[in-house]
């Protein structure tokens, strides 16, 4: 049986929005940043502040989300951020092509070998890393509150009313609930294996050996997910899902606030496209005030 996220009704502006509005607005922002490939902090920063405002308007309690934030923090700061600082890749070519003062050289070496590289850490890479983190967070903090603030009963309806087929809409409904179900199964399996003396913090050996030692957790969870999937299919078959066009009982209606929000999102998307493709604004560059911080 599939479980749902920790959704709770809160009387907030965000929850009063139609779910379609939230999904479409999020897509507008994602496309506004990625389609015209915006790297200019003067555009990214305001968008980030708008996303942050919307996040706070959702009024999600810290205790509910602190684990998820930890995961996002590790991913964005350590993986994306570190990659940006070290390699400067994953963005425009200008990060590595434009001349930029080197802050210091980081000698990296493969342990027990003579193979290694001297990585120059430039001001451009450092700035790029910060912009990259901000870009990612701008998009992530729009998607992040959805499971906590969107009624799980209208996931499917929202996609259906956005034009998806019955099957795609219900698949999205099930997919939204798959992750918390996976987490529940993982927690039960973890308990069952710990009761057999298994200790995750005692994983030793190389990567292959460590992965093998994770099998007692991964295999039961995968098996359980497969079983759950088959059960859901049987249950849906026995109740005639997918044989005729279905009626979606829940109705959604746009309110003036939804039109305003949608207009705002679409304006941002169009604005970013015009700035980049029409006016040539939005390319990556390192602002002088940042360079001055390091070079006198």
């Amino acid at each position: 049986m599939l479980v749902t996220w920790k959704y709770r009704i809160r009387d907030t502006f965000i929850q009063r929005l139609d779910p379609r509005t939230r999904l479409i607005y999020m897509l507008c922002i994602i496309f506004a940043i990625t389609l015209p490939d915006i790297w200019d902090y003067r555009i990214i920063l305001p968008l980030f502040l708008i996303s942050l405002t919307l996040y706070f308007l959702a009024r999600i309690e810290w205790k509910d989300v602190k684990r998820a934030w930890l995961f996002i923090g590790v991913f964005v700061f350590f993986i994306v951020g570190l990659n940006g600082v070290l390699s400067g890749r994953g963005g425009p070519d200008s990060v590595t092509n434009i001349p930029s003062p080197v802050l210091f050289i980081l000698p990296l070496k493969i342990p027990f070998t003579e193979i290694g590289w001297d990585i120059p850490l430039t001001i451009a890479k450092l700035w790029f890393s910060m912009v990259q983190i901000t870009r990612m967070l701008t998009m992530a903090i729009l998607a992040f509150p959805i499971p906590y603030t969107m009624d799980p009963n209208i996931y499917g309806t929202a996609f259906k009313r956005m034009g998806s087929s019955d099957k795609i809409s219900f698949t999205m409904d099930l997919a939204f609930r798959f992750l918390p179900t996976l987490a529940r199964d993982f927690s039960i399996t973890m308990d069952a294996q710990r009761a057999r003396g298994y200790e995750m913090d005692k994983l030793r050996g190389g990567i292959a050996a460590r992965l093998r030692r994770l099998a007692p957790l991964i295999i039961p969870v995968v098996m359980q997910s497969t079983v759950t999937g088959e059960e859901v299919i049987d249950a849906m078959d026995l109740r005639a899902f997918g044989t005729t066009p279905r009626t979606w009982l829940k109705e959604l209606h746009y309110q003036p606030r939804d039109y305003m929000m949608l207009a705002f999102g679409v304006s941002i998307l169009i604005g970013c496209c015009v700035l980049k493709w029409g006016l040539g604004i939005g390319e990556f560059f390192v602002p002088d005030f940042f360079t001055i911080l390091f070079v006198k």
């Binding site: 049986m1 009963n153 099930l174 026995l238 005729t244």
Partner: peptide
Amino acid sequence: PERQIVASNVYNEIAFGPENLGLPR
């Protein structure tokens, strides 16, 4: 019964079959 329930709330679960039959609201 856990194997049978597909919807996340009770009302939707009971409505699931009739919805699939395409009945009027």
